[in-house]
Write a protein that binds this DNA or RNA. Structure first.
Lengths: 192, 192
DNA sequence: TCCATTTCTTAATACACCTTAAGATTACTG
DNA sequence: CAGTAATCTTAAGGTGTATTAAGAAATGGA
């Protein structure tokens, strides 16, 4: 199954599309190939695309004043990864988006997407739901990180994203959880 | 200026409305009066309304497993406060919304709002932008709470929301910042 | 296959923030 | 205006997580 088929079947989990609409949709996205470690979006640029992972693995992260990296999100096949903040507000991104493996991304420019909303209204509904879910996930994470211990957060991450845990380096998981790699290592030892 | 005028002028900061549209909009919202400490939304209920504060002060908070309260958001005149998660997904709210002062709220039911989107398309745009901003604010907060010390977060809160700081109890600010009231008290002493 | 790089672990010490408990203020309510 | 409730402060001692430094293990490139 090629990248565009993956996108179509992903969309069709949520909305219905006629054959004609399917081809309009396909024509609107362009396919990007990334090597491991390649950066797709740099902080400082405006994120002008919505991005779908057809294959591979990405992370979004930002750098604080002391140049330390903080992982905000991981994504694998079937996920959307972006600096939504930047995309939605047309302001410079605070986050980088980087490939952690060789990765295929389908992306659509904001202008193209707005045209697509007109041509295929169901797509607007798809993205509205997408933004809502992004909000919900973020809120869960905020509440979580403020009220649970690092150990609880790690156990939750593990049960929720087992497939991701096995694909990305531990020090990035530590960063995602908001702890140091040393402390995560200690936690893992303790839990086992 | 009465409550509905406040809502209208708030909307008109972002979108344009004809006189006819203004009256359609006004008819869609209902006015609620709350006493201090009164709860507008209980965790467990589905939040079916978008809520605008015309006067007064609200907080949104949730309770963890140990029945401790965590303040998620404050709001004063001109703000929207809600459990957006619940509203957007029609699932039971995790948060309570409670008045911290005698408060006037204008609220619109989801069904009424969806009808209003049809009648006055500019309103849909208003809310789309509202949801985007809510996302952005939440992301800022998440990043903030994970990468900054309590002292930095407090100083930032103070400069950003001076008007709120003066209206709500310190122990709620501590809760919002994710620290204990005792520690906030110590911070304040140290800073002065 | 080997070397260089990346990633993970261990352990000692340090600090940010919490817990508990008590008392001091301040704000409501009758 | 007093009494009670709500809020804020102080202080001692404890815990979770960070920092630093070093070495061990895994991975990738030549």
């Amino acid at each position: 199954m090629d990248a565009k088929d993956k996108l179509l079947s992903h969309l069709k989990e949520t909305i219905k599309l006629t054959h004609e609409e399917e081809s309009i949709v396909c024509d609107s996205y362009s396919e990007i190939h990334l090597k491991k470690k390649e950066v797709l979006l740099f902080a400082g640029e405006v994120s002008n695309h919505m991005r779908f992972i057809a294959k591979g693995c990405l992370r979004a992260y930002y750098m604080d004043e002391e140049a330390k990296e903080h992982v905000v999100q991981f994504g694998i096949e079937g996920w959307w990864v972006n600096d939504l903040y930047s995309y939605l507000t047309c302001t410079p991104a605070k986050q980088f988006v980087q490939a952690l493996e060789q990765t295929t991304v389908l992306q659509i420019h904001r202008d193209t997407l707005n045209e697509l909303y007109q041509k295929v209204p169901a797509v607007e509904r798809f993205y509205r739901l997408k933004f809502e879910k992004a909000y919900v996930a973020l809120q869960d994470r905020t509440i979580n990180s403020m009220s649970k211990s690092a150990e609880e957060r790690y156990l939750e991450f593990r049960s929720k994203y087992r497939s991701i845990e096995q694909r990305v380096p531990q020090y990035m998981i530590a960063s995602y959880l908001g702890i140091t790699p040393e402390f995560l290592s200690a936690l893992r030892k303790k839990i086992k």
